[in-house]
Simulated scan of single mutants.
Amino acid sequence: MRHQDVEQVVVITGASGGIGRATARAFARRGASVALLARGEAGLKAAADEVERLGGRALPIQVDAADFAALDDAATRIEQELGPIDVWINDAFTSVFAPFMQVKPEEFKRVTEVSYLGYVYGTRVALDRMLPRNHGSIVQVGSALAYRGIPLQSAYCGAKHAIQGFNESLRVELMHDKRDVHVTMVQMPAVNTPQFDWVRSRLGRHAQPVPPIYQPEIAARAVVYAADNPGRREYWVGASTVGTLIADKFIPGLLERYLARTGYDSQQTAEPRDPNQPENLWEPADEHTDFGAHGDFDDRSTGRAPQLWASHHHGLIAAAGAGLIALAGVALARRR
């Protein structure tokens, strides 16, 4: 990996809103050159303006992550205008909030093409350029739902599970070939992003992230750290992610019954869904309106995640734990 003092070339899909937008800001503050890939013109323009204002170089490109040829063309343009790609971050997605039997087959296909194949295509495009140089890192923005599916989000959960399996397979192949190109995945908690205002929904009430809710800046910090330290297989963000993944491993049946009882209400506010809200399934919701990084839940979201520090310092924590055990052993021996 390049030292962060050297200008990085970073590509972010889904860069016009939410986690992608917050991540673009974080890299811009470091003076990176940031290629912003998304579909909506207004969102992209606003994101590019922010990157420039914060000290980075911006290259906004309108592209659908489900279109491999378009992504490949975008990557060629990026390297021509900004230089060799150091970091590629896959974050673009769409979804449908509805019980599975209310999701039309063409909708499920579209979610899969964007939210899963978009990651596969982005990864392939990045590797086509990184492998000949034997340099680069790819970060897959994941979710606790990559391990634990929840009701009303079958297409999204399926995509995240698929990314998980794909990423593990690719990671082992790169290890086998002893390449200095790395892939890692960041498993996110519920985040306050605009998706709840523009994802297609057939729910009776307005969709919401399942509390506790984290601000997108927390997610962005984790993505930047993963890009700088891609040797780890994955990172878990937020205590809720840790709790969910541990519960799914050890008490999956109990967790299923809990989700069956609470999963519908916890994903909806008390307010009725606006039938005229924008949708980004087929067309960008931010073509004419910039939604930014944050959703509607600032008053219920936290900008702190102590667990994130622990996730980034496993070695230090393990050493401290071993030290405490050793001290306890010495103390016990003295008492004897």
Rank of each mutant, 00 (worst) to 15 (best):
A144K: 14
I150Q: 10
Q215T: 14
T112A: 09
F166K: 00
L255F: 00
P230Q: 00
F68Q: 04
R2C: 05
V139C: 00
F93E: 15
Q187E: 15
H176G: 14
D265R: 15
E79H: 00
A32M: 08
W88S: 00
G231V: 10
E41N: 06
D128N: 13
V191I: 07
Y225Q: 12
E173L: 07
N229C: 00
N192I: 03
A226L: 00
K45C: 03
G263E: 03
N167E: 10
A318Y: 11
I317D: 07
L203G: 07
T193I: 04
L36A: 02
A70S: 11
L117C: 04
R233K: 12
R179V: 01
M188C: 11
A75L: 02
A155P: 09
L281D: 04
A98H: 04
R2H: 09
T302D: 07
E234N: 11
E41M: 06
A333Y: 03
R205A: 03
I150T: 15
E106C: 08
N229R: 04
A155R: 02
Q208V: 09
L117R: 15
A15Y: 09
A328F: 07
Y264R: 15
I317K: 05
R171V: 02
P99C: 03
E168W: 11
S311E: 10
T193E: 03
A270N: 13
E107F: 04
I213H: 08
L254Q: 12
R202Q: 10
S201W: 01
E107Y: 13
F196R: 09
L324Q: 08
A66N: 02
R30K: 05
R202N: 07
G118D: 01
S311I: 06
T23A: 14
K160W: 07
N276D: 14
E173Y: 14
I85Y: 01
L332I: 04
S95I: 08
A74Y: 00
D177Y: 05
E7D: 01
A47V: 03
G231S: 10
R2V: 12
I19D: 06
A190L: 04
E79Y: 11
P212I: 10
P189R: 05
E50G: 06
S95T: 03
L174D: 01
G253N: 12
P278W: 10
Q4I: 10
A333T: 05
D248R: 15
R221S: 15
V186A: 11
Y214N: 14
A190T: 10
R336V: 08
D72N: 12
E52V: 03
L71N: 06
P194S: 11
V237T: 09
D86M: 02
N90V: 00
P252M: 03
R200W: 05
A58I: 01
Q187A: 12
P132K: 00
I150H: 02
